[in-house]
Design a protein around this nucleic acid. Structure first.
Lengths: 225, 225
DNA sequence: GATGTATCTTACCGCCGGGTAAGATTAGGC
DNA sequence: GCCTAATCTTACCCGGCGGTAAGATACATC
């Protein structure tokens, strides 16, 4: 049980010694940066803040990164890689469209409870340079396309009821993306719990059903056909 | 049809004359500020930016607001008021729980396509002072409670199928909140369209059904409970 | 144990942001 | 038409930030 609370040692210990180990130090910088970006946002996090938490000084950071923005971009990259990995795995698996959607939600929600994953959706893209922005946007588009194709697979094979794949994808993606806004590692719900609950709840709405819902559930106002 | 594109005159015209009309000028400041905050985020929007778009200079703004943060807070207040209004109306209406949920989603989604409404959910709370933050958080809590109570009403009266109200509310709120992240006024979808589509799609998932979904839709990994 | 090199620190620069002081300009009641 | 008060501008201050230069320190290799 007991989710690892302070189980893994703080990142600043990577800088306790001056031993030459750039890789793990770079990683330590990235992890504490991600922490701070999620706590205070990128804009309000100064390089001094990051350095202070690592028990070093600002210029030391420049041994591992060229610009502040590079740190941000690396956070994005780490996160998108996490997502990418689980997604290709799902896409190559066999199963109904609905099953793929469920798997997508499950693993995607899980990523949204990991710091680097949260960064991808929670941090402000406006802080990225033009070309970095394009890179990140490409990743996101790819994710969206994947989800939408899973839904369409489901419609084809009959596991998903008739619906507009675009709106459905927006709904699901929205619900899952929003996790990174309210989730906190020390909170009552673990990542696994959230992920499996969301996968169940959200696919219920998508699954094909034999009985129709009462027509009284139509929204008020002008019904868009 | 043709959604009002440049239909309403630009806000800076409020400052074209020096006529004494503080109320509408204050409003003009607020509206352009909201625009800019959504375009560039609060942090990257300088008071000079706001002033420039209004064809005035920075110190002039201090005739209408004391601090920069006050502008931000007023944007939040305007938005939460919009939400609050439609919510109390729904709560006092009669209907099944599911109908109330649908009405909630519809009007809430609509607000998420209005600049001030978008501000509430899209802007970074971290830019607010401690007490302003508490004020905004209270509003948000109230909204969440309302939605959750509608869902519970639905479970009681049988219009909503059995589910965890907390998770269901998180899903719905997430999906709808996320609208403010991808919606853009000049885009292909109008606010009404989005709102009614979301109300329909999301309530489908909630509605009580007579047949169960195939058990094969369970998520992979350790199934909670 | 000396040496060269990676690592880190102290000190600094330029810039831009929020905010203020003090004075010009215009509106509008009389 | 004048005078007062609201309105807006020009000029400025201070602080903090990203980033750099140059020198101190400790590691690792021989």
């Amino acid at each position: 049980m007991a989710r690892s609370v302070l189980a893994q040692q703080p990142h600043w210990k990577a800088f306790a010694s001056r031993r030459r180990d750039p890789a793990t130090k770079r990683e330590a910088v990235l992890k504490t940066a991600a922490e701070l970006f999620l706590e205070k946002s990128y804009g309000r996090t100064s390089l001094n803040d990051i350095a202070a938490r690592l028990n070093i000084t600002k210029p030391a950071l420049y041994h591992y990164f060229h610009r502040k923005e590079e740190i941000l971009l690396e956070c994005y990259r780490w996160g998108t890689t996490l997502i990418e990995e689980s997604l290709t795995e799902i896409a190559s698996s066999s199963g109904t469209g609905l099953e793929k959607v469920a798997a997508f939600i499950y693993s995607y929600a899980n990523v949204m409870t990991v710091n680097f994953g949260r960064c991808v959706m929670r941090l402000d893209e406006g802080d990225l340079s033009a070309q970095a922005l394009e890179e990140v946007r490409n990743y996101k588009r790819k994710i969206d396309r994947r989800l939408r194709s899973f839904i369409q697979d489901g419609i084809r094979d009959g596991s998903v009821g008739p619906c507009d794949p675009k709106i459905a994808a927006f709904s699901i993606a929205g619900a899952v993306n929003w996790i990174c806004m309210w989730y906190e590692p020390e909170g009552p719900l673990t990542g696994e719990e959230i992920a499996s609950q969301f996968a169940r709840t959200l696919t219920q709405g998508l699954a094909r059903r034999r009985t129709e819902v009462s027509r009284r559930t139509a929204p008020p106002g002008p019904s868009a056909d």
